[in-house]
């Protein structure tokens, strides 16, 4: 654990990240970063995220843009010579970041999208794409007032409709009660 005085920032307790992640196994070879399809765009690359977590600098890690740029392709975890589940480390960081509400500003849209996705499932049990797009676009607009983003993809809708790929009738599950209770218990524990 890095002393707060030397690092100049508050450190998180290691208990923030689950022990099953075996962070100490990582020897920083960088194979995760090497194979990551989006590493070129990342501010903090995968091996650095694991390193920050090893040092207990979890807060800095969870504020990184890169955790939301991760496409969850599992390449890092698959090729890790030490079998560290790097993708799971990133998931754990995202969960913490979501819980604390301190995701990097530039990644708000991705967070909003994932959140809207979960709400959508909570309401319907199954994804209602039209509702998801509506809610997400509105939230994103309210967040950054970007009109081009609001109407981007608008041209796709009629084409999808023409191909019979848009459904206006939601495909809902019958037993919505159990789903509501599941969400309630899972999110409350978090």
């Amino acid at each position: 654990m890095i002393d707060a005085a030397t690092s100049g920032e508050a450190t998180a307790v290691p208990a923030d990240l689950p022990a099953f992640l075996d962070l100490e196994n990582c020897y920083q070879c960088g194979k995760c970063t090497a194979g990551c399809p989006v590493a070129e765009r990342m501010d903090v690359v995968p091996n650095q995220l694991v390193r920050l977590a090893q040092l207990g600098l979890v807060e800095r890690a969870r504020r990184a843009e890169s955790i939301w740029q991760c496409v969850s392709c599992q390449t890092c975890s698959t090729r890790c010579p030490k079998s560290v589940d790097c993708a799971a480390v990133i998931d754990a960081l995202r969960q913490l970041s979501f819980e604390k509400g301190d995701a990097a500003g530039s990644q708000r849209r991705t967070v909003l999208f994932q959140e809207a996705f979960l709400r959508n499932i909570r309401r319907n049990g199954r994804l209602n794409e039209l509702e998801l797009v509506g809610v997400f676009k509105t939230k994103a607009f309210l967040d950054d007032l970007s009109i081009p983003f609001l109407f981007k993809d608008a041209m796709l809708a009629p084409r999808m409709r023409a191909k019979g790929k848009l459904h206006f009738k939601p495909d809902r599950v019958k037993d919505g009660g159990v789903l509501e209770r599941m969400f309630d218990r899972c999110l409350r524990q978090a």
């Binding site: 920083q28 070879c29 960088g30 194979k31 970063t33 903090v44 390449t75 090729r79």
Partner: peptide
């Protein structure tokens, strides 16, 4: 850094590695 993947494209071997000291792929 370690190399993650090697592929062959247009007669070249494309080596995808990382420089962990610079923090870049």
């Amino acid at each position: 850094g370690r190399v993650s993947k090697i592929t062959e494209e247009n007669g070249k071997l494309v080596v995808r590695g990382a420089d962990t000291l610079a923090g870049v792929p």
